[in-house]
Simulated assay, not measured.
Amino acid sequence: MCGRFTLVTAPEKLMSRFHLQDIPFEWKPRYNIAPGQPIPAILADGGRRRIGQLRWGLVPSWARDEKIGSKMINARAETLREKPAFRRLFERKRCMIPADGFYEWKQMARGKQPMRITMRDGEPFAFAGLFDTWTAPDGHKLYTCTIITTRPNEVVADIHDRMPVILRPEHESAWLDRDRFDAEWLQSLLVPYDPQAMKAYPVSAMVGNPKNDRPECLEEAPWS
């Protein structure tokens, strides 16, 4: 699964990397992003990319209650076209979630060791995601998203049995294109990222508490 990630990249660099015209909300570095929180997400509308904030934890438009979102922070790539909650979104409501690292917990003899996984070059990347809009009984709208996961690559396999889908830069525009839907081809993008481009290192147990959203979360820590 993917249950925590980071985004500390400077906004100017993020805009350049993802071809954004602006960031229409207050930007601040995030060291320990958790489900249920608003997260940056990139969509394309008429060929133009825009970034906004969606709540992490998908609430499908047909849901009776928004509480379902806490159970839908991730969507398995292998079953996207089988699950009613995801099948329609896979066709028309694809998004990207920018990040520069994510956390997983490695089982050790003395307990679980939190690990941060990043690109070797430290550059930001994009998770493949899906989004939807839910309308509450009182009429207010809730915009939410989920992060797609796949089997782990060689870097993550020693830590966890799932990893988030990281899109290759050359596939990002096609993933966002709402007018293009080739199910087989899009499905072929939902695979583990090149392990040669990634690395993992141990971090402090403080990341286990989402209230700890500070730079120390990123620092390499001794093995437990």
Results as ranks from 00 to 15, higher is better:
Cys2Leu: 03
Gly3Tyr: 02
Phe5Pro: 01
Thr6Leu: 06
Leu7Met: 01
Thr9Cys: 00
Pro11Lys: 00
Arg17Ile: 04
Arg17Gly: 04
His19Ile: 03
His19Asn: 09
Gln21Thr: 05
Gln21Pro: 01
Asp22Arg: 06
Glu26Asp: 15
Arg30Val: 04
Pro35Ile: 02
Pro40Asp: 04
Ile42Gly: 07
Ala44Phe: 00
Gly46Gln: 08
Gly46Arg: 10
Gly52His: 08
Arg55Ile: 15
Trp56Cys: 10
Leu58Lys: 07
Val59Gly: 04
Ser61Met: 10
Trp62Glu: 09
Lys67Glu: 14
Ser70Asn: 13
Ser70Phe: 14
Asn74His: 08
Ala75Cys: 11
Arg76His: 11
Leu80Ala: 06
Arg81Cys: 15
Ala85Glu: 06
Arg88Tyr: 10
Leu89Ile: 03
Leu89Gly: 00
Leu89Val: 05
Glu91Asn: 06
Arg92Cys: 05
Met96Ala: 01
Ile97Glu: 03
Pro98Thr: 00
Phe102Asp: 02
Lys106Gln: 15
Ala109Glu: 14
Lys112Thr: 12
Gln113Val: 06
Pro114Gly: 08
Arg116Asp: 01
Ile117Asn: 02
Arg120His: 07
Asp121Pro: 07
Asp121Ala: 06
Glu123Asn: 08
Glu123Phe: 02
Pro124Lys: 09
Ala128Phe: 06
Leu130Met: 02
Gly139Pro: 04
Lys141Ser: 05
Lys141Asn: 03
Cys145Phe: 02
Cys145Ser: 07
Ile147Trp: 01
Ile147His: 02
Ile148Gly: 12
Pro152His: 06
Pro152Gln: 05
Ala157Asp: 11
Ala157Arg: 13
Glu172Leu: 11
Leu176Phe: 09
Asp179Ser: 15
Asp182Ala: 15
Ala183Ile: 15
Glu184Arg: 15
Trp185Val: 15
Leu189Asp: 12
Val191Pro: 04
Gln196Glu: 15
Gln196Trp: 07
Met198Ser: 12
Lys199Ser: 12
Lys199Leu: 14
Tyr201Ser: 12
Val203Phe: 11
Ala205Leu: 15
Ala205Cys: 11
Gly208Phe: 08
Gly208Leu: 08
Asn209Ala: 14
Pro210Ser: 04
Asn212His: 12
Arg214Asp: 11
Arg214Thr: 13
Pro215Ala: 02
Glu216Thr: 15
Glu220Val: 05
Glu220His: 02
Glu220Pro: 04
Glu220Ala: 12
